[in-house]
């Protein structure tokens, strides 16, 4: 609030007295400010994910029906997740790439679980602006590197879902997951 000096604030007298009174006024305004700030906590945190949304943050997917060369789309946190059973040829292609030449250098082994290198599990969310890349569905374009191709802005991913061409800055994200059995993957 705008105000100028000397607008009717009572004339104060002795020095100590003035300091004591000023202190109380400042403390009162301070307390009001602290209260106002504390109120912001619930007002802001109400927008973060609610308990039911957080509870959905793991999902179990059956992979027994996916044959080599096939992929399925699962749902994890209301977003697509690609589960792909790589063929030996695709694995070989992925391993043939010089890692140092990649925009986001990672080997296929780093992006899969030991002993399960044929299971490439990634988010189906382009790291550019979040579109769903093509390539997981039957008959979809896989792009020039044989992995995924994002139609929005032309990002191409290879058979390890690493970014090879186009505007996306990162490889497709590998979510946290574990094999709860040979045929079931728990994501999240």
């Amino acid at each position: 609030m705008a105000h100028d000096a000397g607008t009717g604030i009572p004339e104060l007298t002795a020095g100590d007295e003035v300091r004591r009174r000023d202190f109380i006024n400042i403390a009162a305004v301070g307390a009001a400010s602290v209260g106002g700030l504390a109120v912001l906590i619930p007002l802001i945190s109400q927008m973060s994910p609610s308990a039911d949304v957080l509870a959905e943050s793991s999902t179990e997917i059956d992979i027994s029906q996916i044959k080599p060369g096939q992929a399925i789309k699962g749902v994890f946190r209301k977003q697509p997740v690609f589960l792909r059973n790589l063929t030996p040829k695709e694995i070989a292609e992925a391993n043939a790439v010089s890692v140092a030449s990649l925009r986001d250098p990672q080997t296929l082994a780093e992006r899969t679980k030991p002993g399960k290198e044929n299971w490439l599990i990634t988010m189906g969310v382009c790291t550019h602006l979040g579109c769903v890349p093509l390539g997981a569905g039957e008959g979809e374009v896989k792009g020039e590197f044989g992995g995924y191709f994002c139609p929005c802005h032309g990002s191409s991913y290879d058979t390890a879902a690493r970014i090879r061409k186009g505007p996306a800055p990162k490889n497709l994200e590998v979510p946290e997951y574990t094999f709860t059995s040979d045929t079931v993957v728990k994501i999240g």
Binding site: R21, I24, N25, A28, V29, A31, A32
Partner: peptide, 11 residues
């Protein structure tokens, strides 16, 4: 805060 406010008011 109300007590402080009341003291400030009295001041």
């Amino acid at each position: 805060a109300t007590i402080l406010g009341n003291l400030a008011y009295r001041n």
